[in-house]
Design a protein around this nucleic acid. Structure first.
Lengths: 342, 342
DNA sequence: GTGAAAGCGCTAACAT
DNA sequence: ATGTTAGCGCTTTCAC
């Protein structure tokens, strides 16, 4: 019997503000006022209204409310790859900053291929701004979005600016230089780079590597191995690299996933990190922090990036800034056990 | 100038169905019909209306639409820890199954402590059902939710059933048995267990371990180390365990994170996996699959769990089932390099 | 085929 | 302090 009741509850129309009004014996406006905590409701009525609402299990209808108020105080997020905790960290920053600004965060979860679709859908809920995390859109697609809503592209989209979106990225060039300089400071002269030349960030990090080597007078020792961003990429490329180890004493890898692949190949070859090869990664992924890998890496301050993204949105919303702006944030070096003096 | 225009666009009221009607020189009802593809609109008018809508950059207002139709075809998800890719995999399953059923998925991202709050907020958007991933609520809190909405608790909440929620979990008992049986089949007799006795799943897995050992006639060799679910837990406990290695030849660890901690401790001790100790984890976390760890583990079929969760919701929604139901799904063993014959 | 009109549940003037 | 009223943007009868 209980179960039947429960089931029926899903079908029965939910109580509305009118039902509450009737039960409390007042008008619906008063209910609205009371529910929104207006001071001009008598204590007596307020109590009665709140009681009635509770008895009825009344729950406000955002849809209706937002329809009239026309401000939602909701921002939408689309995460390109929510399997990657990296974006979760950024989302954390967004959520806390948004909450502080009295905004709610709605994440649209759609099929991977349907970013635009999901974005459009989110916009139909009248989110006041959109955050794209690690999502790269076609220029025309992005332009269509920015035409009607403030969009902030985080951790991706090097040329999003031209399409009217704000961007928040870490300084890949600087980060790469920091990695190289760290290795050089440990006495390494033969520092190679495992690159991801097919990604925008990969090209910038590679440029940082080259320039750092030049500035250190090590340009002639520079050596770039083309790989990619995945563990598989790192593993395969590292296997080819094995014979050169010894000549090469240190390696700066495009990111931590690829570095994990290098760890695997090195282990298989019976060599040791950092005894035979010092390694620096990038991104400070979760696995980099485990004691087993303990990978020295370049950390992107994701929390700050998320907060900055919210900041950018608020500027747009309150009219402080009308032009798209590029926010770049400095990364930092995290030294662990994968690098040592030579 | 362009920038100014763009900025203004955020402030100007969005075009409504009425604007489209005016521009196309028809009534708003006709616009609605045309937009929804009704067959009883003349070809001529339809074209005009669609053109007008395009020119105006018209975008429907879900809020208004849903307000009248009173069905949203949206389900809400709350992820306890979206940093854990484990839940992302489940979310994948939910998204694809929901999409197939013509449902959209909205993830409420709130502060960690505000699960109930976020849930309530999602409900104000009239989501038709709620998925809680890895979230454990107080009984009373959960009960309040299930009273008005179908709720499916995934990968958590052993006693959620009693509060009226559907549950989808993997069979922890079976998984633990599989782990032990795998080790026994490799010839191990002294198999220890590193447990997480403060978690519901931990207790079940421990029970599975004990029973499996008994059934194999190895009960006297059973040894349980109390740890916890984190890498830190695994590391600390493993350090205490080191002297016993040799006597113990195999270890079944509560989950992969803790197992990663064990890897770290073993490495520090100068020992080797699997030469000195065979290890089986649980959950098939991302790091378990890296070549560097290559951890044999018990995989929870997250994709299926997500799909099952959607299935459960649909049953509730279409009235097929009125009682809460417990769905349990069998895990599977993934053999990698961390276990070997002895 | 097409338009007029009545709400969906709520907020926000405006009255009282 | 409380009630009345007019919409918010849309769908959906119901006439024409």
């Amino acid at each position: 019997m209980t179960a039947t009741l429960i089931n029926v509850a899903y079908l029965i129309k939910r109580p509305t503000i009118l039902d509450v009004a009737a039960r409390a014996g007042v008008s619906k406006s008063l209910v609205s006022l009371a529910l929104n905590g207006s001071p001009k409701v008598s204590q007596e009525r307020r109590t009665a209204i709140l009681a009635a609402a509770a008895e009825l299990g009344y729950r406000g209808n955002s849809l209706a409310r937002l329809l009239v108020s026309n401000r939602t105080r909701v921002c939408g997020v689309i995460v390109g790859d929510f399997h990657n905790p990296f974006y979760a960290d950024i989302l954390d920053g967004i959520v806390s900053a948004a909450t502080a600004a009295d905004f709610r965060v709605l994440a649209g979860a759609g099929l991977h291929s349907q970013v635009v679709n999901t974005a459009e859908w989110l916009l139909e809920f009248r989110v006041e701004g959109l955050f794209l995390l690690g999502v790269s859109l076609e220029n025309s697609e992005l332009e269509a979005l920015t035409a009607t809503t403030p969009v902030t592209v985080v951790a991706a989209g090097s040329d999003a600016l031209a399409q009217g979106a704000d961007t928040v990225t870490n300084d890949d060039y600087l980060g790469a230089r920091m990695a190289v300089e760290h290795l050089a400071s440990l006495g390494h002269r033969h520092i190679a780079h495992m690159a991801a030349p097919h990604t925008p960030a990969g090209l910038i990090r590679q440029a940082g590597y080259i320039d750092a080597m030049s500035d250190l007078g090590l340009r002639k020792n520079a050596q770039v191995y083309d790989a990619g961003p995945s563990e598989e990429d790192g593993y395969e490329t590292a296997k080819e690299m094995i014979p050169s180890i010894g000549g090469i004493t240190a390696l700066f890898v495009f990111n931590d996933f690829a570095a994990a692949g290098v760890f695997g190949a090195i282990k298989e070859a019976g060599l040791s990190i950092p005894d035979d090869l010092s390694i620096v990664g990038y991104d400070n992924a979760h696995l980099a922090g485990t004691r087993y890998m303990s990978l020295t890496t370049i950390n992107q301050p994701q929390q700050s990036m998320g907060e900055l993204a919210v900041h950018a949105l608020l500027e747009r919303l309150d009219g402080t800034r009308a032009y798209p702006k590029k926010y770049v944030i400095a990364p930092d070096l995290i030294v662990r056990q994968s690098t040592r003096k030579r």
